[in-house]
């Protein structure tokens, strides 16, 4: 039985902000299905009272003094921006028709 459908793959691609062709949807459906089937071996594990490990170090709430510092210069920051105008990064219209 397939664990993942083409519709799910399209939904996930949208969440991931990836444009996918029909061909890619087919391929990802097969491949993700194989990987997820493989990953389901984790169901063999009894994790009833097991705490999840998010992080291996015993570090909590790493804080520092809040000291104002100079940021990066604007010209430098804009250097890698694909499009900019009047010192600001430019993107296509974000408002619909």
């Amino acid at each position: 039985m397939s664990r993942i459908s083409t519709d799910q793959v399209k939904h996930v691609a949208n969440l991931a902000r990836l444009a996918v062709s029909e061909e890619e949807v087919e391929k990802f459906t097969k491949q993700l299905d194989a990987i997820i089937s493989f990953a389901e071996q984790l169901n063999e594990l009894d994790t009833e009272n097991v705490e999840p490990t998010y992080h291996v170090l015993d570090l909590k709430n790493v804080l520092r003094e809040d000291i104002p510092k100079q940021g990066l210069p604007r010209e430098e920051v804009l250097k890698n921006a694909p499009e900019h105008q009047d010192g600001q990064i430019k993107v296509p219209s974000i408002l619909g028709e």
Binding site: V50, E51, P52, T53
Partner: peptide
């Protein structure tokens, strides 16, 4: 979450 728990083990 299951994988995070497996990580603990």
């Amino acid at each position: 979450k299951k994988a995070q728990q497996a990580r603990t083990l």
